[in-house]
């Protein structure tokens, strides 16, 4: 399935919203089971890039694009139904968004819609994904409680479990820790590190240090342009572009 270890291949991707040129021609390869950190200031196009990978930009009526994105060698706009794509490419949002349902029902929301209704199977999914998201021990005795009763950090791990429940290959994180305290952040990061052998992960973050801690490679976006992409350790010690250096050393952004 995988071509030379490449999971996602983006070729000549350009994105407009109405008249706004949000993403300039972008070529990028995302390797299988790597963690790619994506950093950059506001309006740099990093979230637009992320949302193009699960075709979430399509939700915007004014969205136009050029170029192609392929997942496992298949064009995501032509060869894969959008529902199938989003099952394979899960997303964790900036704010934790539990649905107004119990913890249990939050996790199995996806599987249920995809036709899994066997009670044992659903319980199995809940236990597995909550364990993977480091939430099981905290909630195992109160799975019927509303997901909205949990703390912010717990809610975000619940959302992570919900994403895992549809068994994705790729997980997109859109600033997943922007509203969380340091301990909750650490738990999410720990989960991400443990996922390395299972999922390809792309982390958009405002927190450059988080990218430095977690990711294998880091991409730096600025004003719709990919300025630089490299191994994280190299990027954060010897960036090849002066703008990258300015950004990660906190001179702007």
């Amino acid at each position: 399935m995988v071509n030379n270890g490449v999971k996602i291949e983006v070729q000549g991707l350009e994105i407009w919203f109405d008249q706004i040129y949000a993403l300039k021609p972008l070529n990028i390869q995302i390797k299988d089971k790597e963690i790619l950190g994506v950093i950059g200031p506001a309006n740099s196009g990093k979230t637009t890039f992320l949302r193009s990978l699960n075709r979430f930009n399509d939700l915007n009526d004014n969205f136009r694009f050029k170029g192609s994105i392929s997942l496992d060698g298949k064009n995501i706009h032509k060869d894969i139904a959008v529902g199938e794509l989003r099952k394979k490419v899960g997303m964790v949002f900036a704010l934790p968004i539990p649905l107004p349902l119990s913890i249990f029902e939050n996790v199995v929301y996806g599987p249920r819609r995809h036709g899994v209704n066997d009670k044992n199977k659903l319980e199995e999914i809940v236990e597995r994904t909550l364990k993977e998201a480091y939430l099981w021990d905290e909630v195992k005795d109160r799975l019927q409680v509303s997901g909205m009763k949990l703390s912010g950090g717990q809610q975000q791990r619940l959302c992570l479990a919900r994403t895992l429940a549809v068994e994705p290959d790729v997980i997109l994180y859109d600033e997943p820790c922007s509203g969380l305290d340091p301990i909750s952040t650490a738990k999410i990061e720990e989960a991400m590190s443990r996922f390395k052998d299972k999922y390809t992960q792309i982390l958009v973050t405002n927190n450059t240090k988080q990218a430095a801690r977690v990711s294998d490679r880091t991409a730096f976006f600025l004003m719709g342009d990919l300025v630089e992409i490299d191994r994280t350790d190299k990027m954060f010690t010897y960036p090849s572009d002066s703008r990258t250096n300015d950004y990660i050393s906190g001179r702007f952004g």
């Binding site: 899960g90 949002f93 704010l95 968004i97 649905l99 996806g110 819609r113 995809h114 919900r162 549809v166």
Partner: peptide
């Protein structure tokens, strides 16, 4: 009904109609 409910549902690969049926209409 918050837009985010729809986005969460869609992000899980759930179809638009099912999203409306299970994440919007009940609320």
């Amino acid at each position: 009904v918050p837009q985010s409910f729809r986005e969460v549902s869609l992000s899980l690969g759930v179809s638009k109609w099912q999203t409306i049926r299970y994440s919007v209409l009940p609320h």
